[in-house]
Computed example of a mutant assay.
Amino acid sequence: MTPSPSIRSAFTPTGTLRAAINLGNPILAHQGADGGARGVSVDLAAEFARLLGVDLELVVVDAAGKSVDVVASGAADVGFFAIDPVRGANIAFSAAYVLIEGCYLVKDASPIRANEEVDRAGNRVVVGKGSAYDLYLTRTLQHAQIVRAPTSPAVVDTFLASGADVAAGVKQQLEADARRSSGLRLLDGRFMVIQQAMGTPKSRGERAAAFLAQFVERMKAGGFVADALARHGVEGASVAPAAG
Results as ranks from 00 to 15, higher is better:
Thr151Glu: 04
Leu44Tyr: 02
Asp119Tyr: 11
Gly88Phe: 13
Leu141Ala: 10
Asp84Ser: 13
Ala161Pro: 04
Tyr97Lys: 05
Phe93Ala: 10
Asp227Glu: 11
Gly163Asp: 06
Ala114Lys: 15
Gly223Gln: 08
Pro201Ala: 05
Asn123Val: 12
Asp188Cys: 03
Thr151Gln: 04
Ser67Gly: 15
Val106Pro: 03
Ser41Ile: 03
Val54Pro: 00
Val216Pro: 02
Gly65Met: 00
Val156Tyr: 01
Phe224Lys: 11
Arg218Val: 09
Gln31Ala: 14
Ser131Met: 01
Leu186Trp: 01
Ala20His: 00
Gln196Gly: 09
Asp165Gly: 05
Pro111Trp: 12
Glu101His: 11
Ser9Trp: 05
Gly233Tyr: 14
Gly24Glu: 02
Ser182Val: 10
Gly65Phe: 00
Ala92Trp: 07
Phe211Asp: 01
Met219Tyr: 00
Gly236Lys: 04
Leu186Pro: 01
Arg8Cys: 07
Ala144Met: 14
Val156Cys: 08
Pro85Gln: 13
Ser238His: 11
Glu117Thr: 05
Val126Phe: 05
Ser238Trp: 15
Ser4Asp: 13
Ser94Trp: 10
Ser162Ile: 06
Val42Asn: 05
Ala72Trp: 07
Ser73Gly: 11
Ala92Pro: 08
Leu23Val: 10
Leu23Thr: 15
Ala75Cys: 08
Val147Ser: 05
Phe191Asn: 04
Ala242Phe: 12
Ala132Thr: 06
Thr16Cys: 00
Arg18Val: 11
Leu137Ala: 13
Ala63Leu: 02
Ile91Leu: 11
Val70Lys: 04
Pro150Tyr: 03
Val239Cys: 10
Ala29Lys: 03
Gly183Val: 07
Val193Asn: 14
Val225Lys: 01
Cys103Val: 15
Asn115Leu: 07
Glu206Leu: 12
Ala109Thr: 09
Ala96Leu: 02
Phe81Gly: 08
Glu206Asn: 08
Val170Gly: 07
Ser110Pro: 09
Val155Arg: 04
Asn115Cys: 09
Arg207Thr: 12
Leu56Gly: 03
Val61Tyr: 00
Asp34Ile: 12
Arg231Cys: 15
Thr140Tyr: 06
Ala37Gln: 09
Met219His: 01
Leu229Arg: 01
Ala96Trp: 02
Leu141Glu: 11
Phe159Pro: 01
Gly183Tyr: 06
Gly183Met: 08
Phe11Pro: 05
Ala121Met: 12
Val70Tyr: 02
Ala132Gln: 02
Leu58Gly: 00
Ala96Pro: 05
Asp34Tyr: 13
Ala209Asn: 10
Asp34Ser: 15
Val193His: 10
Leu141Cys: 12
Pro85Trp: 09
Ser181Val: 03
Glu101Phe: 08
Pro13Cys: 12
Asp227Lys: 13
Arg190Ala: 11
Arg231Ile: 08
Phe211Cys: 00
Val98Asp: 00
Ala242Leu: 14
Ala64Asp: 13
Thr16Arg: 09
Ala230Met: 05
Thr200Pro: 05
Lys202Thr: 09
Pro13Ile: 06
Asn90Ile: 03
Gly130Phe: 00
Ala92Ile: 14
Thr140Phe: 04
Asp55Pro: 07
Glu217Asp: 12
Asp84Thr: 06
Asp134Ala: 11
Leu51Arg: 09
Leu99Phe: 09
